[in-house]
């Protein structure tokens, strides 16, 4: 394209125009839990969305995007793209304000505890008698409630659940659309001003480790080679220390 670049001026050049480009909204909400938030009664979640345009005739580099609503003729959002991938152009993922998502605790079942006793490692044998490991599997059922705040149906919201080493997927009321551990995906369709939901059960593996100290003769102070605790503290010290993993 031919143009004149004048000194100390910005020039805006028309590059291309493509009409009737098909697009879709990809929406998702990603869930990953920790031992702490898995037990929370309610967690407010935020979904994200991107707009994917198909068959864009030009290869577009990373650039800014201003999205207008054709009916209103007003800008709707400012976004960016990381550039075309073949004929596909997508915006960056942005927070989705069309959805209200709440993640609620349905049930919390504490599992049966199993106790294992192991000898202490060599460098602690002077102090510890044994190490006690208590393990259990808790079953936690949670329900994700998605409310559609728009006047249009929302199809294909992806609810993605990610497992980690302690929190594993157990089962769900509705079969997952895709199971690819550690990732499980459900597709949710929500009618206008209505709610949709996904309910699933997770297994939480809880491990508690107790260091059982050696019994001392009555009246003997417990000391360590580096630092001697005050006598009163030593006398009141519990018979064991515990550590939760």
């Amino acid at each position: 394209m031919k143009a004149t670049l004048l000194p100390r001026e910005n020039v805006r050049l028309a590059w291309f125009k493509a009409e009737n480009v098909k697009f879709q909204h990809d929406r998702k909400v990603e869930l990953s839990y920790t031992q702490h938030n898995l037990q929370q009664d309610a967690i407010s979640r935020t979904g994200t969305f991107q707009i994917v345009f198909q068959d864009v005739p030009k290869q577009v580099p990373a650039s800014q995007i201003v999205i207008f609503d054709k009916a209103l003729g007003l800008p709707q959002s400012y976004s960016r793209t990381s550039g075309s991938v073949g004929p596909r152009l997508s915006t960056e993922w942005q927070d989705d304000l069309d959805l209200e998502i709440t993640d609620r605790l349905v049930t919390y079942g504490t599992g049966k505890e199993e106790i294992k006793v192991e000898p202490p490692p060599p460098h602690l044998r002077n102090r510890l008698k044994e190490i006690e490991i208590r393990e259990r599997d808790d079953l936690v059922t949670r329900k994700l409630v998605v409310k559609n705040l728009t006047a249009r149906p929302i199809d294909g919201l992806q609810v993605k659940l990610y497992e980690n080493k302690d929190i594993r997927f157990e089962k769900s009321k509705v079969e997952a659309f895709k199971k690819d551990p550690p990732e499980y995906t459900w597709l949710v369709n929500v009618q206008p001003d209505a709610t949709g939901m996904v309910e699933f059960t997770l297994k939480l593996h809880v491990t508690k480790t107790f260091e059982i100290e050696k019994d001392l003769p009555p009246g003997a102070a417990r000391t360590s080679p580096g630092r001697a605790p005050p006598l009163a503290q030593a006398a009141n010290a519990p018979p064991f220390m515990n550590r939760e993993d």
């Binding site: 480009v21 098909k22 030009k58």
Partner: peptide, 21 residues
């Protein structure tokens, strides 16, 4: 810089590309 006008009912968009120099 891209200006994209979207028609949510028709699921079609008009994309205008500009280059700012």
């Amino acid at each position: 810089s891209l200006h994209i006008s979207i028609d949510k009912d028709a699921k079609a968009a008009t994309i205008e590309g500009f280059i700012v120099v």
